[in-house]
Each structure stands twice: as structure tokens, then as C-alpha cells.
């Protein structure tokens, strides 16, 4: 594991990282392993914890429900929730992308000193509590909130438009929560873009939109792909937005998982759902890695490292 680099004097050694690695193995890797193990065990009598008895029931439950008489029948409830989560996460990623390309390009074309300030302004909301950021939309979207208030005041509506506790509110909350994750990687690509290429394209007779489509977009594609992953994955597993803004109507996977460790008291099933989320996460990352390698330029840097 030790590298023989030129001039090792005084730069420390790889084992300086050992305590950190052990910590992460104990508190990141071990919990994930426990989740995988739990997903193959049986439900405990009182619901807290598990019974150490091998079972694939948690995975069967994903597709089938059992009636009181013990009869199994296909039940699409959870598949639908997975489908919903996918759909919301996709819409979120799409909306974030549409908003992020213009702002990332715009910031990347400002003078250097203003760029850092503008990017800092983009990141500030990210550093505030996600709970509070989600809560803000309870205030904004509710029937007495500023939007309905404004529309009522100018006479556009006579009855408040119900926005809170709808899928719309959930998606708005998700977009708000993860927008910086899209802007930053795209900006990172856009900032490295050599605008002399655009000038060359103009010189060859291309119009603005052609330059954007044919020259700029291909150049910032690594950033776009990184952004899509960084928004899609956390959006898929999001808990707070559907919990606070979606009401009971729009559950996502995270809410179902939380319920299994709370009121429903079915830890193995909750673990199985989590394993599914992990598998999806890994698949998305794998696709990303393949795409990134194909474009090679972003490789070598961890995808999230671009964020900071």
C-alpha cells in the first residue's frame, strides 16, 4: 500500500490515515453490512430488532401481501412507491438540470473574482438545515401562504389553489433541496471550458444557440452527468420533502423505510427496502462510472469532490 514517491521526507506516511479508515469501516461499512444481514432475517416478536432466523420473506413482501388466512397475492403497493420515487427523482433531476445550465454558464462567464462570490452564494443554502429549508415551503405553499395571498390579492383566484401536501409540493421541495448539487458540477465543467472554442465557432459562422448546442453542451457534459447523479440519488432516497410537504398522499421509499423502523415495526422489511435503495444507488453510480470513463476527463476525481 505504500508508494515509493520521490522525496518522502517529512510528508508523513499512509498510516496517518489508518485511524480514519478504521473509523469509517466501523461506522459506515459495518452499518451497511448489518442492513444487508437484517434484510435476510425474520421479524422480531415485538417488532424492535430482528429474530435471528434466515428468511427471504422481507423480499417477498416487496411484491406480495399475505391475507389473514395466509394466502399470498401480488400486491403492487411497494412497487408503486418505488415507481413514484423514481418519477419524482427523475422530474427533480430534470428541473434542476434546466435551471442549472443557464446559471452555471452565466456564472462561469463572469469575471474571476465575481465568480467565486456567486458560487459561494449558490452554496450558502446548502449549508443550512435541510429541515428548515423544507419547512420554508410549508409556509410558502400553504393556503394562506404568500403565493395564494398574492394571487388572491390581485384577483387572479377566488379560492386558494391547494399546493401543499401534493406531489407538486414534494417535487418543489426536492428541487430546492438538491439544486446546488446540479449547479456546482456543471459550473466546474463550464469554468474549465475554453471560450476561444466558442469564438472559433462564431468565427466559422455559427449562431448563439448553435454554439451552445454544438460546442458548449458537449464540453460540459461531464458536469451534467455528475449533476444528474448527485441530484437523482439523494432525491430518490429523500425523506423530509415527502414527509413534510407531500402529506400522506405522496410517500416515497424513505418514508416507508422510516415507518418500518417506527410505527410498523418490521425491521427486516425496512432493511430489505434499504438494500433495494442501495442496489439502485450502486447501479446508478456504475452507469455514471462507465459514462465518466468514456469521457475520461473527469475520471480520477471522486464525483462528489467537485462539489466543494
Amino acid at each position: 500500500m505504500i508508494t515509493k514517491k520521490r522525496g518522502a521526507a517529512g510528508q508523513g506516511s499512509w498510516w496517518a490515515g489508518a485511524p480514519g479508515l478504521f473509523y469509517l469501516i466501523a461506522l459506515v461499512l459495518a452499518p451497511l453490512v448489518v442492513i444487508v444481514i437484517y434484510s435476510f432475517l425474520s421479524r422480531a416478536k415485538l417488532g424492535v430488532g430482528v429474530k435471528w432466523e434466515f428468511s427471504i420473506a422481507p423480499y417477498v413482501e416487496l411484491f406480495y401481501s399475505e391475507s389473514l388466512s395466509g394466502e399470498r397475492s401480488f400486491d403492487p403497493t411497494y412497487l408503486q412507491i418505488f415507481g413514484n420515487s423514481f418519477l419524482y427523482a427523475l422530474i427533480t433531476a430534470g428541473v434542476c438540470l434546466l435551471l442549472s445550465i443557464p446559471i452555471a454558464m452565466w456564472i462561469a462567464t463572469r469575471p474571476a473574482d465575481r465568480r467565486t462570490t456567486l458560487i459561494f452564494l449558490v452554496t450558502i443554502p446548502f449549508w443550512t438545515s435541510l429541515l428548515i429549508r423544507t419547512y420554508a415551503f410549508i409556509i410558502i405553499l400553504n393556503d394562506n401562504g404568500p403565493i395564494n395571498g398574492f394571487l388572491g390579492a390581485i384577483g387572479a383566484i377566488s379560492m386558494p389553489i391547494p399546493m401543499l401536501y401534493t406531489p407538486f409540493a414534494t417535487v418543489v421541495g426536492l428541487v430546492y433541496a438538491f439544486l446546488p448539487f446540479m449547479i456546482l458540477p456543471i459550473y466546474a465543467s463550464a469554468e474549465r471550458f475554453d471560450f476561444r472554442l466558442a469564438e472559433a465557432a462564431y468565427d466559422l459562422g455559427a449562431a448563439k444557440w448553435t454554439v451552445l448546442r454544438r460546442i458548449v453542451l458537449p464540453a460540459i457534459r461531464p458536469g451534467i452527468i455528475a449533476g444528474l447523479v448527485l441530484v437523482f440519488i439523494p432525491a430518490l432516497g429523500s425523506f423530509l420533502a415527502p414527509e413534510l410537504l407531500g402529506g400522506g398522499k405522496t410517500s416515497m421509499i424513505a418514508n416507508v423505510i422510516a415507518a418500518q423502523f417506527g410505527a410498523s415495526r418490521n425491521w427486516p422489511f425496512g432493511a430489505a427496502l434499504s438494500v433495494m435503495v442501495l442496489v439502485i444507488t450502486l447501479l446508478v453510480l456504475l452507469v455514471f462510472a462507465v459514462l465518466a470513463r468514456r469521457m475520461s476527463r473527469t475520471s480520477g476525481r471522486s464525483s462528489w469532490e467537485v462539489l466543494l
Binding site: 508508494t3 518522502a8 510528508q11 508523513g12 506516511s13 499512509w14 496517518a16 424513505a254 434499504s274 453510480l285
Partner: peptide, 28 residues
């Protein structure tokens, strides 16, 4: 400090561990 002195395989593993809590959905 350690990451700078690790071989490629070691640092890839380390980065995966470091980045995992950020990329894995928080609920999991």
C-alpha cells in the same frame, strides 16, 4: 496526510469509504 502517501488501490478504497455517507441516501 495518509491519502497523499497511499497507493492508488488504497486511496480508491479510502475515497469510497469517505464519500459513502454523502452519496448513500441519508435514510439508509
Amino acid at each position: 496526510i495518509g491519502l497523499l502517501r497511499m497507493a492508488r488501490s488504497g486511496s480508491t478504497f479510502a475515497w469510497a469509504l469517505i464519500g459513502a455517507p454523502l452519496i448513500i441516501p441519508e435514510i439508509v
